[in-house]
Design a protein around this nucleic acid. Sequence first.
DNA 1: ACTTTTGCACTGACCAGTCAGTTCAAAAAA
DNA 2: TTTTTTGAACTGACTGGTCAGTGCAAAAGT
Lengths: 209, 209
Amino acid sequence: MESSSAPSGGSTRREATRQKLYEAAVTLIAEQGFSATTVDEIAERAGVAKGTVYYNFASKSVLFEELLRHGVGLLTASLREAAEQTARDGGSKVDALDAMIRAGLVFIDRYPSFTQLYVAELWRTNRAWQSTLMVVRQQAVAVVEGVLREGVDKGEFSEEIDVPLTAAALVGMVLVAALDWKSFQPERSLDDVHAALSRLLQGRVSGRG
Amino acid sequence: MESSSAPSGGSTRREATRQKLYEAAVTLIAEQGFSATTVDEIAERAGVAKGTVYYNFASKSVLFEELLRHGVGLLTASLREAAEQTARDGGSKVDALDAMIRAGLVFIDRYPSFTQLYVAELWRTNRAWQSTLMVVRQQAVAVVEGVLREGVDKGEFSEEIDVPLTAAALVGMVLVAALDWKSFQPERSLDDVHAALSRLLQGRVSGRG
DNA sequence: ACTTTTGCACTGACCAGTCAGTTCAAAAAA
DNA sequence: TTTTTTGAACTGACTGGTCAGTGCAAAAGT
């Protein structure tokens, strides 16, 4: 075979091509949707022949599915890291949630197209990649749920909170606020957006500031 | 201006056909996306000939655009009604927000497909109906923003809150929680979901219940 | 009378996926 | 060293199929 040779980790020619295809596909699909995006477009934007797409991926759907897995993997790792870091620093569970909100914002700031595409596809039914999507979604949400549950156990959060639903609501809060930020007020700083969401999380909306 | 068996000039038959087409299109597009849904499918599900689609709408895009306008119009009216009703009853602004959360949940409960489709298209760029979508979105969000602003003026909310961003976050909270509810825990009651979101809104997450 | 719907054949553009052929760097042979 | 071979990676013209939108005469509704 070949491989080996390349000293740095996983930097084969093939891997580089796949990466280019991911990047091309993510922006195009975020803009236009999966069906409206052609494989020719993806290949062209990646600077690659159409055949190369099919050499690297079994089909358009498979390319998309792997893109999805790859992206949500990054997000999940980032959320987990934020939670663990807070724990290491002896922070409370609210601090952990806050850190995860920030991690979410950083992620969306860095990969806005991916986020957009994810939201657009998440609740669709009857699609080939539906099951893949549910799995990766659950991995990400589970991190939030974990922190909430630990908070309940520690007595920091009310026992009456509905963990899965609250987790979903928190994720939605960050997701929609961030997408609106990127779409309609892109000039604002991440700190600014984070502060606003932090306030909402901690119930410091009611009452004067 | 529909229903009513009044013999007034405007033909009601046409209106009924349009309604059937809306209903067929909304579920199909929610499931599959705009591009993946064919006009033939829409016509078939509506129980109508393909020619009828084009007799009633200039194109597939126009049909979709009018569907979008129609749906968001219903939501906006419902939110506005909830806010006004609360005001009439002498409720606080938090009560108004709470009533709007419920109104949002009722809407999503009734029109889950529409909601799904709306979320999937909202942050897309480069699409024909993009501008239409931004206008109707703003109409809906403005209702929430209005209540927040009034709350700030009355001293009920902190002056430091970021009105547009907080409004977006609240909408996101309801949207995502509700879509998750419908997708993953459809057996739960609306009251249940409403209670969980209410708690989050009022900062009753931290501290024991 | 006139509006609306039907049914169906047709067109032209567009697109996912294929495949025979090319490239080129590294391994094997000379 | 120099030459030859190998094969993974890549290419792009081509195919078979799909779909938005058209045209129109006859039927159904009001």
